[in-house]
């Protein structure tokens, strides 16, 4: 498994500083952890009292409204794709960025299809858990393959309408 980060100067393979904790695993004294929403809700106080960065992952049927008041305290939100065709996380990502103003790391986890990367970037994801050993190459191949976008999203890219009207 590789973790890919989209940066302004291009994609990079990065080290995952978060440990993904199972719901019944003991909470380590130190280090960044990624927990489920269930665990976060149950152990909120203990988790927030730690000094290390905290991340919460949402299953595809959990809405980001559940954590919309906690986002200042989270260093990572991860959204799960149980299968690539379950596209609920695209909406969750946009809501997190565009509605709730989340600024931290937004990670796609689970069954991430490389052809989905352009859509994920447009929806607000910035890191990606990729199975393929050639993830970096794949990212470079697919992102930017289509030069025009029609929809305004939180990524701020100039849409066809913006360009037609000379707005940007």
């Amino acid at each position: 498994m590789a973790l890919l980060e989209s940066r302004t100067d291009g994609p990079a393979l990065v080290e995952d500083r978060f440990v993904r904790l199972a719901d019944d695993a003991a909470l380590p004294a130190e280090g960044a952890v990624l927990v489920s929403l269930v665990r976060f809700e149950k152990e909120r106080a203990a988790l927030l009292a730690r000094k290390a960065p905290l991340g919460v992952w949402l299953a595809s049927n959990q809405t980001p409204a559940a954590i919309s008041n906690e986002l200042d305290r989270l260093a990572l939100v991860a959204l799960d794709f149980p299968v690539f065709s379950d596209g609920r996380a695209f909406s969750s990502a946009r809501l997190l960025r565009e509605r709730y103003g989340y600024k931290g790391e937004l990670r796609a986890i689970g069954d991430v299809l490389c052809e989905q990367l352009p859509f994920m970037l447009r929806s607000g994801f910035d890191t990606f858990e990729m199975k393929s050993p050639k993830a970096l190459e794949e990212f470079r191949a697919v992102v930017g393959e289509v030069r025009v976008v029609y929809q305004p999203t939180g990524d701020g890219r100039a849409t066809a309408i913006d360009r037609r009207l000379g707005r940007r």
Partner: peptide, 13 residues
């Protein structure tokens, strides 16, 4: 047509 073409949020409904 334009709005729905390669819509980032609604391509995996």
């Amino acid at each position: 047509r334009q709005w729905s073409t390669l819509h980032p949020e609604f391509s995996f409904l």
